[in-house]
């Protein structure tokens, strides 16, 4: 199905958020997630199924002021 990942269209086979992250290459990355602008804690990822058109945000620690 097609979803939106960090503002860009992405084709994914998996539907479960935990598996989608693995499919997209975030195996051991320190990231936080939000789906359709709602924060999804790490503990909730395996329970959440995404649908076509969902907007997934994946963020990591970065420099800031």
């Amino acid at each position: 199905m097609q979803i939106n990942v960090n503002g860009k269209p992405a084709e994914v086979k998996e539907t479960n958020l935990c598996n989608i992250l693995k499919e997209l290459g975030y195996f051991d990355a320190k990231v936080a997630t939000a789906v359709n602008e709602v924060f999804v804690p790490t503990a909730e990822r395996s329970k959440l199924k995404l649908s076509a058109g969902d907007r997934l945000e994946i963020v990591a620690p970065q420099q800031g002021g």
Partner: peptide
Amino acid sequence: ATVSVRREAGFEKAGNSFWKLI
């Protein structure tokens, strides 16, 4: 130290190394 969160692609892993440095 002030820090932020930003989008990251799966292959980048820049966040991991930055976090280690901090």
